[in-house]
């Protein structure tokens, strides 16, 4: 199977020296949600901009549905939908008027457009607010309208650039639900970028971890987590007796590390090993007072592949603040 989006040796160099995207190659299959995870400034938006024909690659190539993003721009533009990072919906128009304008720009027939607009406004729960001017909308409502706009022409590929940036937790959850619903109701391919680990983890079929313009790892969230080498069971045991040997004897245990009265046990599969492990310890005369099971999360995955935690990487850039300021300016 070949990918619907194919990216080969893609490079983007800004002002002669900044390698924003540094030779990346990957494929996105039809109908999958593919996520680019990385800190701000990692090259996510630059990649999206090249794929959506807004930026010209310095070298390398990319095709969407077989159409080259440099040589067949109009074809590419007509099959993709873009939900940009910024809020670009028009303040002075109503929600419906924004949608109508978008429909005209994407050559959706008038009759079809009317139905589709109702459908989409319903989907993103803006049907009640559809005739109000967008300047009365909250940030979350604008973002949802933005999402609906991106879907007006039933695109083959939807590009979501930081779909939940600057949204509160509830609104973020709502956006996730919309994105999941989309995937279930159509065979649309979704390419999204995010710097929220849990977002990538819960939404994406596959994740590319990108840092400093390079793809550091690319796989399903599950496999990425597995690649860290299994789960960790922490147990606290009363008494002076060393239980290390007893723990090692349990099936599925990879390694044991003793720290004071507690043990960090690395195992292949935490759920199935926990019970035998506890039995083994009590058989050996140990009394377990505390047990936790830690599964690797995307934070650890990120740390593993980029050598720094996402939070540290975030602090390097002040982009978040800028984006927030921009949104505030717009709503005032």
């Amino acid at each position: 199977m070949t990918g619907y989006i194919e990216v080969k040796d893609l490079v983007k160099v800004y002002s002669g020296s900044v390698r924003a995207v540094d030779d990346i190659t990957f494929e996105v299959m039809e109908g999958e949600i593919f996520g680019f995870l990385g800190p701000n400034g990692a090259g996510k938006t630059t990649t999206i901009s090249m794929l959506t024909t807004l930026l010209r690659p310095t070298s390398g190539s990319a095709t969407i549905g077989g159409h080259d993003v440099v040589k067949q721009q109009q074809k590419v533009r007509s099959i993709i939908g873009l939900v940009p990072q910024e809020l670009t919906v028009d303040d002075e128009l109503s929600g419906r008027e924004n949608m109508l304008l978008q429909a005209k720009l994407y050559h959706v027939e008038n009759k079809v457009a009317k139905e589709r607009i109702d459908e989409l406004l319903d989907l993103v729960k803006l049907d009640d607010a559809s005739d109000r001017l967008v300047k009365t909308y909250s940030g979350g409502m604008r973002k949802r309208l933005e999402l609906a706009e991106g879907l007006i022409h039933s695109p083959k590929v939807l590009f979501l650039d930081e779909p939940t940036l600057g949204l509160d937790v509830q609104t973020r959850t709502v956006m996730w639900a919309h994105i999941r619903e989309l995937k279930e109701s159509s065979n649309m391919t979704v390419f999204m970028t995010t710097h929220y680990l849990e977002e990538a983890d819960s939404l994406c079929d596959r994740i590319g971890i990108i840092d400093k313009g390079r793809i550091m790892a690319l796989d399903t969230p599950k496999k990425l987590k597995e690649s860290l080498g299994g789960d960790v069971i922490s147990v606290k045991i009363d008494g002076e007796m060393d239980q290390t040997e007893a723990i090692k004897a349990v099936d599925g245990v990879l390694s044991v590390k003793k720290e004071d009265g507690s043990y960090r046990v690395k195992v292949m599969n935490g759920e199935t090993v926990t019970a035998p492990l506890l039995q083994g310890i009590s058989k050996n005369g140990g009394k377990v007072t505390y047990v936790t099971l830690e599964r690797p999360n995307m934070d650890q995955v990120f740390l593993e592949y980029t050598g720094r935690s996402l939070r540290d990487a975030e602090q390097a850039g002040s982009y978040d603040k800028m984006a927030m300021a921009r949104q505030m300016r717009r709503s005032s």
């Binding site: 959506t52 024909t53 807004l54 109009q74 533009r77 007509s78 993709i80 873009l82 940009p84 990072q85 910024e86 809020l87 670009t88 028009d90 720009l105 994407y106 050559h107 921009r326 717009r330």
Partner: peptide, 14 residues
């Protein structure tokens, strides 16, 4: 341009 509307137009098949 500042609010990205121009980019949205640039990404549209017009």
């Amino acid at each position: 341009r500042r609010f990205g509307f121009l980019n949205k137009l640039r990404a549209a098949p017009i």
